[in-house]
Design a binder for these strands. Structure first.
Lengths: 334, 334
DNA sequence: ATCTTTAACGTAAACGTTTACGTTAAATGC
DNA sequence: GCATTTAACGTAAACGTTTACGTTAAAGAT
């Protein structure tokens, strides 16, 4: 009982071709028939069937977004940006929660393929070879967000993790800190783990500060990692006056653990985070952190997808600037 | 250059009907031809076109989720639950960020209609008449999540806001508090505003405590509302020993404002939140709050959509139990 | 007055499937 | 040994569009 283009054609006494032309406003009809058809469309409440359209036009006006952690605040902001420009382009987004599982990722990739989506943004994970192969076979634009590929020629949008970590560390140093600990992602993580450690080390070295192995604890990026990491770190490096946390969640974990141990932030310990999530300003004390323009990055990633779709060729990667946002978790040492 | 069912039919020396039957494993072919066809499919890397399928089967294996605030942590958890079961059902979800704007909502609804989605979960907003009308015309299952409709017969999954607020208030009272303030959503908000105020009032009344108008401040549900609201509240109700915040974000705002004013939580002021978001355990001090089983609710909402799809009839609404989770932002008054 | 262009359509094929129906040959029943 | 059932397919219509191409009549050019 759904109303098709035939129904309006019949009622308006024209052919379906004419109706189609009018709906897509391509040339080929008079003002009067346009009026008539538009009116019939209104009366009947006709809406074109996107499936039939997509079958011919090879455009579904849908893009896929692959995220490892759907409920992380980082992802929320990315998705928010992506959704915004996607909607502006008249498309919609299917979110695919991969849980960092290869199987679920591949499964979703197949689903996206069958759904004939127009493009993909692949977020915060390393692009494995088989993922790349599947997407390449789909022959649609893809861009990486907050990750990059060293093996495949895929445009990405990121912040420079190394430089951002360098900045954070340098900020601490300039505030007079010398004994600086770090809680980071694992070294095996070549996207968000090792580079931030490298940046930290580089800054220390640049200011002629040596760092011992026990000054760095490698855990994950979430709250629990922060509290666990802090316990480990304070144990093996009690002289520490400041910590660089590789994510805001980790920083909150540190804040929380410190609070329970009666260590006052920032008076006894300075903490700097990474990301500038919304919670960074909600914490007590408000968290000083190095900001990534998350929403902007999400937006840009989607824009690049559409740009590639329209131009039919690849596009330059973007390194977004980071920025220290000063709040109240870091104290200047005199 | 995409590979269609025809290609595999030709290469396997069978008709497309047979290939179709095999792909959808419906009866009507021998073991040998199945082997053969499956092998050809493998060789060619054939994947059925979902659009063509959907055009006939009237199933797109896609559902739409409408959320007012995509980056809010509440929504993240809902979406997380929805995505999970949707994926289990072999479908995917399109997220639609309405920004609480009627126009964008309507726009998205049209898009979803054209995309021929199989179902809708509508989240945390009041279901206006025209929304309802559009969705009803689409003739697909819809369920409301964290909202309900008093005007239209749409199944919903919620917590009882009134009871939950009652519980929170009662908890405070049982801890010895008598002078209890509240920062709530606006009274005009008949879903999450007024009911929680009602619950608060009811609990106070049940314990024979009077509450004055100045004890309740009505703002919104986010962090800034919490800090602003607290300033207002502490100003007009300085004797207050405890606050009930209508959301965890608001509670964090209170914590933050109190910290800056050197009011110690929980020693000088007790705070209880609402929602039990992940940040509730990340705050300092960790937040005592009334928990909604957010992910479970998200899951259930999706399950109901699929149940309605399969059974082709409506379904009972669900009121989920809430629960006080005790952490460290409330002090027992002696 | 004739030819050419152009506007305003209509016809029908195509997009890639599913599925009702028809066909054939083998298997079964007696 | 013949009629009847059944397994194993193939044919073609349908799903709801877009679009290349053809057609008609009016307008413009010469």
């Amino acid at each position: 009982m759904t109303i098709t283009i035939k129904d309006v054609a019949k009622k308006a006494n024209v052919s379906i071709a004419t109706v189609s032309r009018i709906v897509n406003n391509k040339p080929g009809y008079s003002k009067e028939t346009e009026q008539k058809v538009l009116q019939v469309i209104q009366e009947l409440g006709y809406h074109p069937n996107g499936l039939a359209r997509g079958l011919i036009s090879k455009r579904t006006h849908t893009i896929g977004v692959l995220v490892p952690e759907i409920s992380s605040m980082l992802m929320s902001e990315f998705i928010s940006g992506i959704e915004h420009v996607t909607h502006d382009y008249g498309s919609s987004v299917i979110v695919c929660h991969t849980e960092s599982q290869g199987q679920k990722t591949r499964q979703y990739l197949q689903v996206l393929k069958e759904k004939q989506i127009d493009g993909i943004v692949f977020t915060s994970e390393v692009l494995k070879k088989d993922y790349y192969q599947i997407i390449k076979d789909m022959d649609i634009p893809m861009v990486l967000l907050s990750t990059e590929s060293f093996d495949f020629p895929v445009p990405y949008v990121k912040v420079s993790d190394r430089r951002a970590a360098y900045s954070a560390t340098e900020y601490l140093i300039k505030k007079g800190h010398r004994k600086i600990g770090m809680i980071s992602g694992r070294r095996g993580d070549i996207i968000a783990g090792q580079p931030r450690i490298d940046g930290f080390m580089a800054a220390m070295k640049a200011y002629e500060l040596s760092v011992k192995d026990e000054w760095i604890v490698t855990e994950g990026f979430n709250f629990e990692d922060g509290v666990n990491g802090f316990h480990k770190l304070i144990d093996q490096f009690p002289e520490m006056t400041a910590v660089f946390a590789a994510s805001d969640e980790v920083a909150l974990g540190i804040l929380s653990a410190a609070y329970k141990m009666n260590i006052h932030v920032p008076d006894q310990l300075s903490v700097i985070g990474y990301d500038n999530l919304r919670i960074a300003e909600m914490s007590t004390p408000p968290l000083t952190t190095v900001a990534q323009p998350l929403v902007e990055m999400g937006k840009k990633s989607a824009e690049l997808v559409f740009e590639m779709m329209e131009s039919n060729r690849s596009v330059e990667s973007r390194i977004f600037p980071h920025e220290i946002v000063e709040r109240q978790s870091v104290k200047e040492l005199s």
